[in-house]
Design a protein around this nucleic acid. Structure first.
Lengths: 215, 215
DNA sequence: CGCATAATTGAGAGATTTCAACACTAGTGG
DNA sequence: CCACTAGTGTTGAAATCTCTCAATTATGCG
């Protein structure tokens, strides 16, 4: 349904990220999975039993309705963790957005990882609940502003934001169509709030304006 | 901002609930808080350090925008657990919807509750992510259908559903206005899918139709 | 019984979607 | 190196859905 081409966008180095990624023991012994653009990491209904940490690239986690409508519940950038499930079954799909390296942490029957997993699960829960406010109560321009602010913060708060995902991905994350996403980008550009350097990178010119818009 | 009056709706007994509530040790020694309709259980920004289990009644957890728009991220019915936070600070508000009894489990520095909390956090995460699909990609009628199906299941899958919350709460949960919620109820009634026994109780006549609508 | 609150209904306005055309981009192969 | 092509993004116009504003009805508690 979706076909994506690898991009040459370089994400900020891990040390530039606001939240240093956790080091799980024995992290270096865990297998590193490589996924090309669009590759499935796991599917809804599949047996779960691991969690994942993005080394480089980006991941989308989503769910589908019967008629193909898609809701991306989260993007995961370098250093971030995803894939834990309440059940022994995956409730969502996860795909590499572009060339992505993922460290896989298998959950073994013996080892207890509750300590490490609980803060990650709680962080994810807070994120999801905050996103509910965006989807439930914010206008298109507020949603895009919130998205840009969020991504910018996760990339270290730099002026320039690199978007690893397509407009369609952004739309499916924000509950909007690609046309609306595109129109809002144009509106923000015309207002002088952002500059579109190219399709996948945005410069935030009026950081305050963007921030105010999103709350 | 909101004033609610207590209702006389009797929720199903705990034994009728599909998921038996966890028994946390030493549960019976934990204080039982009583909250009248509309009372605050905790506020955003407040110090966290406990989690809560509904004994009777119902709770809404929500977040506000600066201009007063509200998004309810979850309702919690008898037997359900809520209130764990990633941080030491509450990111949301929690209020009793009507007269509600809540068991409070303080998190003490010594005791480690990761084992008990992780599955609850993961369950909450899955719920929130599923709700994202509803808010992001479903129409008003689909949202209300999904809501009724969800509440019905959590009340034991009975034909008759008791709604402890107002139309405004439902609207703020589904990202709709009260007028739209009301119109959708009327539409579902006219289609013969549900019957409105009174304002707070709904009989599901065509369960399959409702279920199909919500997916 | 009566008042305040909550819910329903109607009509018009507004935001986003849909459908359609066009432009741009990146990768391919001549 | 350029033309070609498929995919991606932008823009426009009309349609649709939900919201807003307003009036009416119903409910529940004192």
């Amino acid at each position: 349904m979706h076909a994506y081409t690898a991009s040459r966008i370089s994400l900020p180095s891990r040390s530039a990220l606001p939240n240093r990624p956790e080091a799980f023991e024995p992290a270096l012994l865990q297998p590193l999975g490589f996924y090309p653009a669009g590759a499935e990491i796991y599917a809804q209904g599949e047996k779960a039993g691991a969690f994942y940490q993005v080394e480089f690239g980006a991941v989308r986690v989503y769910r589908l309705l019967a008629d193909g409508r898609r809701q991306i519940s989260a993007f995961h950038l370098a250093g971030e963790t995803f894939g834990f499930e309440a059940d022994t079954t995956h409730h969502f799909f996860a795909e590499a957005i572009n060339s992505t390296g993922v460290r896989v942490f298998r959950l073994t029957a013996g080892a207890d990882m509750s300590h490490q997993l609980l803060p990650l699960a709680l962080k994810g829960l807070t994120r999801a609940q905050e996103h509910l406010l965006v989807l439930g109560r914010q206008s298109a321009i507020e949603r895009v502003a919130a998205f840009l602010v969020d991504i910018a913060e996760r990339q270290g708060g730099l002026r320039q934001v690199e978007l690893p995902m397509s407009r369609m991905d952004i739309g499916d994350y924000l509950g909007l169509t690609i046309e609306t996403v595109s129109r809002v980008f144009t509106r923000l550009k015309d207002k002088g709030v952002i500059r579109l350097l190219n399709l996948r990178s945005v410069e935030i010119v009026k950081h305050d304006a963007l921030h105010n818009m999103s709350e």
